[in-house]
């Protein structure tokens, strides 16, 4: 299959990628993932885009089904495992999975206590997961849905329900997975997931575009000295574009945006995620985290735990996001609950 190689009237050099065939990238990635993690996950027989936890699902337990487009690894499939998600429906690159693999995920992990769908708030995902929920309702499987909406830059305050879900998915899924693993009923799992989402705030900055394996073409244009605050994890334009600044200035801008909404009080506790969008290295993430830690201490906010690394990527995009997840006793206990996934372990 030929990709979208050339833009109108211009020859664009294709980006370099280690692939065999861009159109088969997701299938071949899944084969590699399953080969690497045989003790954690399997694909549903006859439904290769439905990835299920080997040790998580059991009778009487709410099944947590997550999913979305590929290209964000380890989000989403890396968070399938005991104590976190029970299954993940895998879409094409940056595209929602269709209803069928979602339905197969739900059936594979249904323990008779209901199914909880959790995924980022995007129009395509909502349509496909809603269609899956309608199909499952016809088979008497109860489904509840919680959308993650942590991307502060994607809609103004007061329109939180319009915001997209980005790296903060990590905390939202973690809380829901813990609740389900503790055998809490569907109502409780849903309540805890919603609460976790309400307390999760992310802002990202992009420095350079990514390119889809099928197109090998940069998915947006940005000047050599520019950055964009608030860009989405699919390259959706953000809130402002400006000259590239220092790490401390970038972090200050991000933290200011988050604090403006979160309004943390002295003595509040948070968990921190400093996430790479793909190609920004750990060195730069830790330089950012240095400033994050200083800003939190300055504000009198206690940091309960910090994760730094690739948690929700956008292929090889350069840039990073910062997520703050405010904890009360309940959310802290969910965060500290052990989990053992293909690409993430805690506790």
């Amino acid at each position: 299959m030929s990709g979208c190689g050339a833009a109108k009237g211009r020859l664009i050099v294709q980006t370099k990628k280690i692939v065999n065939d861009g159109a088969r990238a997701v299938e071949e990635m899944l084969q590699g993932v399953l080969a690497a993690h045989p003790r954690h996950i399997r694909a549903v027989e006859g439904s290769p885009r439905s990835i299920v936890s080997l040790n998580g699902p059991r009778p009487g337990k709410v099944g947590l089904v997550i999913g979305g487009g590929s290209g964000h690894e380890p989000t989403f499939l890396g968070f399938v495992g005991k104590g976190l998600a029970d299954a993940c429906a895998v879409g094409n690159v940056f595209a929602s999975p269709p209803p069928d693999p979602i339905v197969e995920c739900a059936k594979a992990v249904d323990g008779g206590a209901g199914i909880l769908f959790a995924y980022g708030n995007y129009a395509g995902d909502v349509m496909n997961f809603d269609m899956a929920a309608e199909m499952l309702a016809m088979e008497d499987i109860e489904v509840r849905t919680v959308l993650s909406t942590d991307d502060v830059a994607s809609a103004p305050p007061g329109e939180r329900e319009k915001r997209r879900g980005v790296a903060g998915n990590f905390f939202v899924f973690k809380a829901g997975g813990a609740a389900a693993d503790r055998m809490l009923p569907l109502d409780e799992c849903e309540r805890i997931l919603r609460k976790a989402n309400d307390q999760t705030y992310t802002v990202g900055v992009a420095l350079a575009p990514c390119s889809l394996p099928q197109t090998r073409r940069p998915n947006f244009e940005i000047g050599p000295d520019e950055m964009e605050i608030g860009m989405g994890i699919h390259g959706e334009p953000g809130v402002e574009r400006g000259p590239l600044r220092t790490a401390d200035e970038i972090v200050d801008d991000i933290i200011d945006k988050i604090f403006a909404e979160m309004a943390p009080s002295r003595g509040d506790r948070v968990a921190v995620l400093v996430n790479s969008l793909g190609s920004t290295p750990l060195m730069e993430l830790y330089i950012m985290n240095r400033r994050v830690a200083a800003r939190l201490a300055d504000r009198g906010v206690e940091t309960h735990a910090t994760w730094v690394g690739n948690y929700c990527t956008s292929l090889e995009m350069a840039g990073a996001s910062i997520t703050l997840h405010r904890l009360d006793g309940e959310l802290q206990s969910m965060l500290d609950h052990p989990c053992d996934c293909a690409m993430f372990r805690a506790g």
Partner: peptide, 18 residues
Amino acid sequence: DRLCALDGVIGDADHGIA
């Protein structure tokens, strides 16, 4: 290609592929 390019301006550049 044209659809991907249009989508690249305001979306995620994959509409033509889908």
